[in-house]
């Protein structure tokens, strides 16, 4: 009978129309600005820089090694290395980025900078509502806008951040143990301190893990609630 197929299709349409009031998996939309779907843990948008403690300048993990700048596929990262050194969160004097800019009109959120960073310093943000009134200069994110606290990182990626903190703490503990062993052996030479300590799960050694100065490590302790 001609028209039977069309009638069958209309029955499907009717079922979906009625079903959208009754069944949850037929009505999948949400009223966006008021209602929001939760973002998954792995969601990534644009890179941010992590700092420990409260001071974005003092606690910045980045040591301006320029690996991410080199590995970035669309070349959207610009780093100028500082001339002086500042103590990192463990007290070891390190270079820091005098300029760290990311051109987010060029960035394609591929996460390669995160993968290659040996210092756990650059991570992916989850903020996606980024529209601005200004057309050009707001597309260039400066170091001040990029720096985000470790608490914020824990807030957006809880599982990943806990793992990172665990890795850093283990590396710091290993460095501490090594330092004590070196101190115990009176024949300790300065060169043994400079040996790299491998961070679990990371191919490259993390110089931040080498404990030289203070024994307290505010970055690896659980963040204080704000």
């Amino acid at each position: 009978m001609i028209g039977a197929g069309i009638a069958k299709g209309m029955a499907v349409t009717l079922r979906n129309f009625v079903g959208s009031y009754l069944e949850e998996d037929r009505l999948t939309t949400v009223q966006y600005p008021e209602e929001r779907n939760p973002l998954p843990e792995n969601y990534r948008n644009f890179p941010i820089l992590i700092f420990d403690g409260n001071d974005p300048h003092a606690g910045l993990r980045c040591v301006a090694c320029k690996i991410c700048e080199k590995e970035c596929p669309p070349q959207c990262i610009y780093i100028t290395k500082s001339e002086d050194k500042k103590p990192d969160y463990m007290g070891k004097p390190q270079f820091y980025p005098a300029v760290f800019d990311i051109d987010i009109s060029v960035c394609m959120s591929c996460q390669i900078c995160v993968e290659v960073c040996p210092f756990e310093a650059i991570k992916m943000d989850k903020e996606f509502e980024l529209s601005k009134r200004e057309r050009f200069n707001a597309l260039l994110e400066r170091k001040e806008q990029l720096a985000k606290s470790n608490e914020y990182y824990h807030h957006i990626h809880p599982v990943e951040a806990a793992q990172v903190d665990k890795n850093l703490a283990e590396a710091a503990a290993a460095a501490e143990a090594k330092k004590k062993a070196a101190a115990a052996a009176t024949t300790a030479k300065a060169s043994s301190v400079g040996d790299a300590v491998s961070v679990p799960g990371k191919p490259a050694a993390s110089p931040t893990a080498q404990s030289l100065g203070s024994t307290s490590s505010p970055g690896v302790s659980p963040p204080a609630a704000n």
Binding site: I2, G3, A4, G5, I6, K8, G9, A11, V12, T13, R15
Partner: peptide, 12 residues
Amino acid sequence: EFEDLILQNEIV
């Protein structure tokens, strides 16, 4: 459901 919707449809 999708096959019901289209496959026997005379217009398709």
